[in-house]
């Protein structure tokens, strides 16, 4: 579904992602794990077109989206839940979700989104900035789902979220995958979360993928060693 080939990203003269190759299959959840500063967020942002990449390609199904702008990638079927949620804080919950409808024909927020996140329906007139961290995370996911994506990218969705909500987020992602038939690519530092949701795990170290394992054959100790400081 998502094919990343020989993919490099630079900030000016400094290359941060080096010739990366990986794919995400249809209906698969893939987690990419790594410490701070290893390039996870840069990779996510560049896949979304928010950071420019000059080398390599990103294909969504048969479509090469490498040179497309962010909104064009959304139209093709990519959606993004960024680190820190980045919801539109002065807009209401309903208005936030509606921004995700820009590329689809729906006039109203689909009922399936409120079914997935009932708390958002209860709070749809409240400003996004007045929600708790966990509710904001749900809102960011709901906003991304509104565009009816084929692949959902999430950058550290557990950051700043209390442990009880982390479990809920994991369950929600699995439910979304099953109900919407999505592929999900999630960056993380929390191994337990990744093991809970992912079918396959990649490890990123200094802008390169250094390890790839399926959930069934995962060597937890080795992966944990990549995450410890």
């Amino acid at each position: 579904m998502l094919q990343v080939s020989d993919y490099s990203v630079s900030y000016g003269q400094s290359e941060v992602i080096h010739g990366m190759n990986f794919d995400i299959k249809e209906n698969e959840i893939v987690a990419i794990l790594g410490r701070n500063g290893m390039g996870k967020s840069t990779l996510m942002k560049s896949l979304m077109g928010m950071v420019e990449s000059r080398l390599g390609s990103v294909a969504l199904g048969p479509v090469d989206v490498s040179r497309m702008k962010s909104h064009e990638r959304v139209r093709e079927g990519l959606a993004f839940v960024p680190q820190g949620r980045m919801i539109f804080s002065t807009m209401t919950v309903k208005e936030n979700i509606e921004t995700g409808l820009t590329t689809v024909n729906d006039k109203k927020v689909p009922a399936s989104i409120y079914e997935l996140f009932p708390v958002l329906e209860e709070m749809k007139s409240r400003r996004g900035g007045n929600l708790s961290g966990g509710q904001q995370q749900q809102l960011a996911i709901a906003r991304a789902l509104a565009s009816k994506p084929k692949v959902l990218l999430l950058d550290e969705p557990t950051e700043g979220i209390q442990p009880s909500i982390i479990k809920e987020i994991a369950n929600t992602l699995k439910k979304i995958r099953d109900s919407h038939g999505l592929s999900i690519f999630v960056s993380e530092q929390v191994l337990s979360f990744a093991l809970d949701v992912a079918d396959r795990i990649l490890v990123i170290e200094k802008g390169e993928i250094v390890r790839e394992e399926t959930r069934d054959s995962v060597d937890e100790k080795t992966i944990a060693s990549y995450l410890s400081v």
């Binding site: 979304m48 077109g49 928010m50 702008k69 962010s70 909104h71 959304v74 139209r75 959606a79 993004f80 960024p82 980045m86 539109f88 804080s89 002065t90 807009m91 208005e95 509606e98 921004t99 995700g100 409808l101 820009t102 590329t103 906003r143 991304a144 565009s147």
Partner: peptide, 24 residues
């Protein structure tokens, strides 16, 4: 209006507005 929502989204966070599908 829907357009007004897009304008306010761009005002608040331009890169994120693009990443939800708005042609900024």
């Amino acid at each position: 209006s829907r357009f007004g929502g897009q304008v306010r989204a761009v005002v608040q966070n331009r890169p994120m507005a693009g990443a939800v599908g708005i042609n900024t």
